[in-house]
């Protein structure tokens, strides 16, 4: 039997991970090679890991270097956070004040991120990631890809543009396994799950 063509899964939101993993398990257990393109730079805290049998390529570094994201994290999160941490290490009342301010800052950042940053960024994130991803198509090796599965709405703008640029490439939202021939299970997942160490970050950056 010939090696089946590769499947590219695009997941830009962590909410898609579990769904993607059950799809990956079906394909990877049957020897279908899969590449997952993720944008795990923002909003992926405590996200579950992808199946370690899949090749995972990440846009995180590129996303975090976007001017808007970089400026926000530097001015609101990392900059003041670093300052308060240093202050907190100082002896005496300055250190105490620094630690208190640090705690307040963590709480404030959580709210600012949720209510202001994320609301604004969410609206443009898909477009911003599309620009980043379209400039890095080479590592995705699209010529050997049989279908592209767009796992969430944030990835739709990228998938839509890809479908326009490559009309012969199937770009779909459906995690449909019926398109693959009934392949035998050749590489099942271990019954007790994968060794967590095997699935450690970081994913390969593109």
């Amino acid at each position: 039997m010939t090696t089946p063509d590769r499947v590219l899964v695009v997941a830009f939101r962590k909410a898609a991970v579990q769904r993607v993993n059950s799809y990956l398990d079906y394909l990877l257990s049957r020897g279908v090679p899969v590449t997952v393109l993720v944008a795990d730079g923002q909003g992926w805290k405590q996200a579950p890991r992808f199946d370690p049998r899949a090749e995972v390529l990440s846009l995180a570094d590129r996303e975090n270097r976007q001017p808007f994201v970089w400026t926000y994290t530097m001015l609101v999160e990392r900059g003041p956070g670093g300052l308060f941490r240093r202050l907190g290490r100082a002896p005496g009342p300055i250190g105490g004040a620094g630690r208190r301010l640090g705690r307040l800052h963590v709480k404030a950042v959580r709210k600012i991120r949720k209510w202001f940053f994320w609301r604004g960024y969410q609206a443009v994130r898909g477009h911003s990631l599309r620009r980043i991803a379209l400039r890095r198509l080479e590592p995705l090796r699209l010529d050997g890809v049989r279908r592209v599965v767009v796992a969430d709405t944030a990835a739709v703008p990228f998938g839509w543009t890809l479908a326009r640029r490559r009309p012969g490439l199937e770009v779909t939202r459906a995690m449909d396994v019926s398109a693959f021939e009934p392949l035998p299970v050749t590489d099942p997942a271990p019954e007790l799950g994968f060794d967590p160490a095997a699935a450690e970050r970081p994913y390969a950056q593109v």
């Binding site: 739709v156 998938g159 326009r164 770009v171 779909t172």
Partner: peptide, 10 residues
């Protein structure tokens, strides 16, 4: 599901 069928808007 096929993104080739999506409108510009969607």
């Amino acid at each position: 599901n096929d993104l080739r069928d999506y409108s510009f808007w969607r």
